[in-house]
Design a protein around this nucleic acid. Structure first.
Length: 265
DNA sequence: CCTATAGCCTGACGGC
DNA sequence: TGCCGTCAGGCTATAG
């Protein structure tokens, strides 16, 4: 689930629910998700502190604590956040559970336990260490820079979009949606796109991510003109009625419309 | 630099 | 019904 629009939605959710409340207790159910720190040290780092502000880079969510340390959350394939009052209403698959002084709870869910939880001193430092590319919605990624990046990139356009070292935040679903909008075949070569293709791609990246954020990354609320509502089930292109096809790119299943999306070697 | 593969985990689904 | 293989919106490590 969690690509850039989902994580941005989580970030806003934290801002709306969980800032400035003292953390009374910390429970970890999935020690494997905790990276580079013991459970005891992690608990000690959170207890008595509060969330003060949030930041997102790609698919990573950073939460600044009152101690000036940062809580890092990464959601893997199945992560979610949930803020709730009654413990009786606790959701399933809670991997980290905080209880605030006001009696409410903040839970990090992950059915498959593939996410990551860390404590950091500086987001910039972490982003550098991981060699993450610029955030896909960063204001600095204007068309000229975007074109330069793709012209210097070998391999397929879809694997470029999904490569977190190249551009951070886009995963399998939204790369398909972006390529559908830009009418580019997922296996088209990144450095084979012409000016028109790159312009369309640049606009599609920004448009798709922004609209998805506006709709809170809820698949049920995406426009009918998009691929997402038709990916399974009927599987028909909302533009031409053709059936969607699939192919494998960078180890993932890519959906595309064989009539609308043009291949460029 | 790039691609392909397996592994990490769990659950849903279809076929037999 | 039960078992089995496959697949899933992530990342990492490894090999070529």
């Amino acid at each position: 689930m969690p690509e850039l629009p989902d994580v941005e939605t989580f970030r806003r959710y934290v801002d709306a629910t969980s800032l400035h409340q003292r953390i009374e207790s910390v429970d970890i159910d999935a020690p494997r998700m905790l990276r580079g720190i013991s459970g005891a040290k992690f608990r000690a780092g959170l207890e008595g502190k509060s969330f003060e502000s949030t930041l997102r880079h790609g698919k990573y969510l950073f939460i600044m604590l009152s101690s000036e340390l940062w809580l890092l959350l990464h959601f893997g394939l199945t992560g979610q956040l949930k803020y709730f009052k009654d413990k009786a209403k606790a959701p399933s698959h809670m991997r980290m559970l905080l209880r605030f002084k006001n009696g409410c709870h903040f839970a990090c869910l992950s059915q498959r336990r593939l996410g990551q939880i860390r404590l950091l001193d500086e987001p910039r430092h972490f982003i550098g260490q991981q060699h993450l590319g610029p955030d896909a919605l960063a204001p600095g990624i204007q068309l000229p820079r975007f074109k330069e990046m793709f012209r210097a990139r070998r391999g397929s356009v879809k694997s470029a979009l999904m490569d977190q070292h190249f551009l951070a935040g886009i995963g399998n679903i939204y790369s398909d949606e972006i390529l559908f909008r830009a009418r580019l075949h997922p296996r088209s070569k990144a450095n084979g796109l012409d000016g028109r293709g790159l312009t369309a791609l640049h606009r599609a990246v920004r448009h798709v991510l922004r609209v998805a954020i506006e709709r809170q990354a809820d698949p049920a609320r995406m426009p009918q003109s998009w691929m997402l509502p038709h990916r399974d089930g009927d599987g028909e292109c909302p533009r031409c009625g053709n059936e969607f096809a699939t192919t494998t790119v960078a180890g993932r299943t890519a959906y595309f419309c064989p009539r609308c999306q043009i291949y460029t070697p």
